[in-house]
Design a protein around this nucleic acid. Structure first.
Lengths: 142, 142
DNA sequence: CTATAGTAGTCAAATGCATTGACTATTTTC
DNA sequence: GAAAATAGTCAATGCATTTGACTACTATAG
């Protein structure tokens, strides 16, 4: 791997962060898988519909439903009826879910500090800025 | 998703590139899955051992073997005995495999050009440089 | 030169993840 | 009010990945 392409270069630190966050959650007593986390991350504070989650995570609604079932069984989320549409239900984060989010946020902040130390503050901000701009042309749900 | 963390920001363009490359390979008559591609990418010109591929792709040797089986059936790779160690076999890319690599490389180059147009040449080079430095502290097999 | 530990790879079973297709219930549109 | 679209579920299937146990071969130490 002398000169890996940008895709691989993006993937390496991504995977590193994901693995560390998931390992930390497991150690702290909040078991989650990567697939569950992908869905979980997209739930917003007012609650999100299944279809929204599926789209945002680039998967099918069936798969999203399957993963939400698991998150629900573990007590991280709950499903409540959507008052605005009787077909829909809102997936909301529970108190326990919020605890898990706090643990994940802590680890993520620690990793970002490590990266900032290694890269320097300027280069880190440039990296973030470049990734935000890249998102404009690569994220269909931005 | 007002202020996504760096992990998510890394993932978005990575996935975009991966999906486009795989879609292009399928269209060109070289069907591959993402998992197969992860292994395939790590095979070097002299041929690679299964254990090396498994480590580089962060998976088990069983899983690597399973995916190499599939790549072999589709004619992208072949397994030859390793002359230096009778226990081992070398996974090598076939002529057909190299055709697929060429298609993938073409699409990847096209995507990098798009990104460069959107970000500008300087910012693209800064991005690449930052990712290479980040790799130093996030890739166990760098 | 032989006993031992380590390495390369396979076999088999089980689980997790993701997809497709078909279906119900509800809302929107015309 | 009828037709089309949307939110979600059920069921079946295949792909991806893991764990544990195993065979074959190599390297090392005594």
């Amino acid at each position: 791997m002398a000169d890996p392409n940008l895709g691989v270069l993006l993937f390496i630190p991504y995977r590193h962060m994901e693995q560390r966050i998931i390992a930390a959650l497991n150690r702290a007593g909040y078991p989650v898988t990567a697939a569950q986390a992908h869905i979980f991350q997209r739930i917003n504070d007012e609650g999100s519909r299944l279809v929204e989650l599926a789209e945002a995570a680039s998967t099918t609604k069936q798969n999203a439903g399957f993963l939400v079932d698991q998150l629900e069984k573990q007590g991280y989320v709950e499903r409540v009826p959507d008052p605005r549409d009787a077909r829909a239900r809102l997936v909301r984060i529970t108190a326990r879910g919020r605890e898990a989010v706090a643990v994940a946020a802590g680890v993520e902040a620690a990793i970002e500090r490590e990266w900032r130390e290694h890269l320097g503050a300027d280069e880190t901000e440039q990296l973030r800025a470049a990734l935000l701009r890249l998102r404009q042309i690569t994220d269909p749900y931005a």
